[in-house]
Amino acid sequence: MGFRRRLADLWQPWHSGQALLAIPLGLIAAITVVDVLAPGDIHLGPLLIVAPAITPWFAGPWLTGLVGVLAVAAQAIIAVLRDQDELFSTNHQVQIAALTVLSLVIVVFSRQRERRNRQLDRVRSVSEATQRVVIPPLPHRMGPLRIASAYRAADDEAMIGGDLYAAARTGNGARLLIGDVRGKGMTAISDASVIMGSFREAAHRSDTLAELVVTLEESIRRHLTEHAPHSEADALYEQFVTALVLDIHDEDPVAQMINCGHPPPLLLHKHRVTGLHPRQAEPPLGMYDLPRTGLALDPFPFGDDDTLLLYTDGIIEARSPDGAFYPLAERVAQWTDSGPEALLHHIRADLIAHVGGQLNDDAAAVAIQRSPKLAPGHQLKKMAHVGSSDHADRAAAER
């Protein structure tokens, strides 16, 4: 079994990198021929180490070791062809020994690199599973709404951070949440999971958005109190969650929101982009030193073909190499005719280009479009076929 596994490991890199393997093999052949034909005072044999050195770029330790053996053999062939008496000379013995040792070092390095890559793959797999549990993908259809979501963690390996979003079907409408936990790392993920769990339960039990916000507030405060060390009680005042919750009724062309310190959403209506700033600013969730004076609803028109863009500050605070913030509202104005998925695709590509490839903070966005062609009854019929027709629905919707 062990021998078969080694053969399988050897075959897989060979099958995937056989074209690139021609490079070190060609170098070995070329160096050998040139060294044999070169004048006696020119020695190119030490260059053979280049062949095993470049092999780990595209192959595993077994192929790297094979290339190293061929390089050592080539060095011995050079000694034989140039002068048979020199095969066991001090010069060639040192060259062969040095080439052997360096090849072994490269093989060990390749093995460690392969092990680290496997560990990283496992970490990414766990991160992806965690993301699906804590922040599951939003449904593409919810009543008359078409929904698309995008999430990009600042740490590519983690795949998850402190940003969050969720949606729940509630009778004749939908409730949505987008938020941003202060901080990063495991603490932010823990806080985000608390908010998400509380929303999934309270979204169906709360009669009003105000009741929902109060429940979320109580959940995060209780969580922060229970998990904050006594020596760090002051840290409670530094932990908070910005959040935006919305109610969108199926038949009513007016939506409602409560904004708790979150960036205002953008409404795309007939080629116009409008920032929906709250009339009354509410503090973020979990801020002990900022008591609430009342939770007032902010209604806004949301009719057929309108698109609502929710986002976190990781997008609008993303800086270009010269320090300029990402102008989200200005850029979105170019794509008002796009569907939700196409809109987020444009934003994602444009944002990465703006920052030069790497975000410094987590970023999340949700695009919601009210479609007059998707009535609630029609949606119930489509749910039975969503597994087989989802890709076709997306393509047709984007057209």
Results as ranks from 00 to 15, higher is better:
residue 322 D to I: 13
residue 93 Q to G: 15
residue 318 A to L: 04
residue 266 L to W: 02
residue 344 L to V: 01
residue 240 F to I: 02
residue 323 G to T: 11
residue 175 R to W: 02
residue 201 E to G: 06
residue 217 E to I: 02
residue 342 A to V: 10
residue 179 G to C: 08
residue 130 T to F: 05
residue 359 L to S: 07
residue 106 I to G: 05
residue 93 Q to R: 15
residue 251 E to M: 06
residue 277 H to K: 11
residue 317 E to P: 10
residue 87 L to H: 09
residue 240 F to A: 06
residue 177 L to A: 00
residue 302 F to D: 07
residue 164 L to W: 01
residue 48 L to H: 07
residue 93 Q to T: 15
residue 2 G to Y: 02
residue 84 Q to A: 08
residue 81 L to A: 12
residue 41 D to C: 02
residue 102 L to P: 05
residue 245 V to W: 02
residue 190 S to K: 10
residue 8 A to W: 14
residue 307 T to Y: 05
residue 88 F to P: 08
residue 163 D to Q: 02
residue 364 A to R: 01
residue 317 E to H: 13
residue 129 A to K: 06
residue 362 D to L: 01
residue 81 L to T: 06
residue 114 E to K: 03
residue 359 L to H: 06
residue 158 A to D: 04
residue 292 R to D: 02
residue 361 D to I: 00
residue 295 L to Y: 05
residue 373 K to D: 10
residue 46 P to Q: 03
residue 276 L to E: 00
residue 375 A to D: 14
residue 119 Q to W: 08
residue 239 Q to K: 14
residue 346 H to W: 09
residue 181 V to Y: 06
residue 178 I to P: 09
residue 227 H to N: 15
residue 386 V to L: 14
residue 90 T to S: 14
residue 92 H to I: 09
residue 383 M to I: 11
residue 218 E to T: 11
residue 31 I to L: 08
residue 180 D to V: 00
residue 61 P to W: 07
residue 85 D to K: 09
residue 93 Q to P: 11
residue 53 A to E: 05
residue 301 P to E: 11
residue 326 Y to A: 06
residue 42 I to D: 05
residue 201 E to V: 09
residue 308 L to A: 07
residue 337 D to V: 12
residue 31 I to P: 08
residue 281 A to Q: 08
residue 104 L to E: 09
residue 293 T to K: 12
residue 208 T to W: 11
residue 43 H to Q: 03
residue 294 G to A: 12
residue 179 G to A: 11
residue 309 L to V: 06
residue 43 H to Y: 01
residue 392 A to L: 15
residue 247 D to G: 09
residue 44 L to A: 10
residue 209 L to Y: 00
